[in-house]
């Protein structure tokens, strides 16, 4: 057992996914099974082994020139949105019971 239901609630809060109590219970079982299956990772002797974060060996310093290119037309940027007002994306109040501080 790696995670309690309470842990799973905390993870869901961080990932911003609302789960019902029933979903939390089922998710706790699933996650514990999956994490158990990851055990080989924790048992390897990895002393002195460098990590490979990028699969292409030696790839480095990829950059572009500082030149403007046309982006999206304003109306195209707005057309995809669930709710717009005054040319901006409208969202519900940020501070509430569930408010997102940073």
């Amino acid at each position: 057992m790696y995670l309690t239901e309470n842990d799973v609630r905390g993870i869901a809060t961080y990932a911003r996914i609302g789960l019902s109590d029933g979903e939390v219970a089922a998710m706790t079982v699933d996650l514990n099974n999956i994490i158990e299956s990851l055990r080989p990772i924790t048992e390897y002797d990895l002393e002195g082994v460098e990590p490979t974060f990028h699969p292409i060996a030696g790839l480095a310093n990829v950059m572009r020139e500082d030149a403007v290119r046309p982006g999206l037309a304003h109306q195209d940027a707005m057309a995809i949105a669930p709710h717009v007002e005054s040319g901006a994306y409208r969202i519900p109040p940020i501070l509430g019971d569930n408010g997102g501080d940073r």
């Binding site: 519900p92 569930n98 408010g99």
Partner: peptide, 18 residues
């Protein structure tokens, strides 16, 4: 926020995210 499914009836942003 910018695109995609938005659940109706959220109290606040956090609620809407979840």
């Amino acid at each position: 926020v910018r695109y995609g499914y938005r659940a109706p009836g959220a109290r606040d942003l956090g609620d809407q995210y979840e």
